[in-house]
Design a protein around this nucleic acid. Structure first.
Length: 334
DNA sequence: AACTGCCCCAACCGCATTGGG
DNA sequence: GCCCAATGCGGTTGGGGCAGT
């Protein structure tokens, strides 16, 4: 077997995270930023492994996460990206701001696969199932032919005779079914036709994000993961910037900011989080009380993207690879 | 009400990759 | 080049919720 998981040490907690643990982790990250995950549990006073902390932050605590159901546009984008890239969930997630690879993976496995199958599309090949069935029919008829030919040959050989020309041809010339060859990887530069997928509005505005986090991470009870802003997402205007432009802009700025962790540190300085509705805002403020987005000119048209917090959180060195991949043209993956 | 089966999804596990010494 | 720890990623699991009986 491979290397032991980072979570095998005795006395480490596993399973669902308690509100107290979330609070500790969130406080720690907002105060000190993301450094070495392996040291986070100790410094934050958690009985968890660093790996578990990292996952919790990425998949749940990050303030830039977009919760709630997937919009139709997101669905379509996921399907198209999956067709082009397969189960590269991290790469797919890089094209969907605010969504995690885990979330997309779960959504794919629980919903999209079934939807595609209902439509008669093979979720693995993204081709109509009818083709597959036809191939299977052909394959089975080939198998019958092959076995009958084999039987014939046995009989012939037992009788000391050669195969007849016809039966030999049938036996030898039938294509051998190879599922690996049947699978055709169907990428192209813009396989989706989604070059007009996202607008900057796709990201939640600051105020909404703030309210949601406040109301859902109050930690009197565990946060509600399913009742976030589906409506907002569904009503999003997708007619704006192209996906690639959007991603490029987002992630180039992300990289900029991630290369300068002092930005995050500034933002987070003195931002201890009490999990009360009145204190959470401190996370998004500098020590002088000015919201971060007020300090940095926005590259976006006014009102389109107010939530710099999200960007800076997401830019926070989480997945540099994803960032690079997000900037790369689609055909890199083919 | 109690039981069962199914579905969803948060979290874990194992492996690959990366980077520092 | 090798070793090892940290990190990232994709597959899998298991528990909670819910519908059906």
């Amino acid at each position: 077997m491979g290397r032991q998981s980072g979570c095998v040490k005795p006395k480490l907690r596993k399973g669902l995270w308690s509100p107290e643990e979330d609070e500790k982790l969130f406080n720690h990250i907002t105060r000190f930023g993301i450094g070495c995950w392996s040291t986070v549990p100790k410094l934050a006073g958690l009985q968890r492994c660093g790996k578990s902390c990292r996952l919790r932050w990425i998949n749940y605590l990050r303030p830039d996460l977009k919760r709630g159901m997937f919009s139709q546009q997101e669905e379509d984008l996921i399907i198209s990206l999956h067709e082009a890239r397969g189960n590269r969930w991290a790469q797919i997630a890089a094209q969907l701001p605010g969504r995690t690879d885990n979330e997309i993976k779960n959504f794919w496995n629980s919903c999209l696969k079934k939807k595609l199958m209902k439509k008669g599309i093979d979720p693995n090949t993204h081709k109509p199932v009818i083709d597959k069935e036809a191939r299977e029919r052909e394959n089975s008829s080939m198998a019958v032919a092959a076995s009958s030919a084999a039987m014939s040959s046995t009989i012939f050989y037992e009788g000391g005779l050669n195969l007849t020309e016809g039966s030999r041809e049938q036996f030898e010339n039938k294509p051998v079914f190879d599922p690996l060859l049947v699978y055709e990887f169907q990428g192209n530069a813009d396989p989706i036709g989604y070059n007009s997928s996202f607008s900057a509005q796709y990201l939640r505005p600051y105020s909404q994000s703030y309210q949601e986090v406040n109301s859902h991470l109050g930690f009197n009870s565990m946060p509600n993961l399913t009742s976030f802003d589906h409506q907002n997402v569904a009503e999003t205007d997708f007619s704006g910037n192209s996906t690639s432009q959007m991603s490029s802009l987002l992630f180039s700025e992300a990289k900029e900011s991630s290369s300068n962790s002092s930005i995050m540190n500034n933002m987070m300085e003195n931002a201890a989080f009490s999990w009360g509705t009145d204190k959470f805002e401190s996370v998004f403020q500098c020590q002088n009380g000015i919201k971060y987005e007020e300090m940095k000119p926005s590259p976006w048209p006014e009102g389109q993207l107010q939530n710099h917090n999200s960007e800076y959180f997401s830019s926070y060195p989480l997945t540099s690879l994803s960032e690079d991949l997000a900037r790369a043209p689609m055909d890199v993956f083919q």
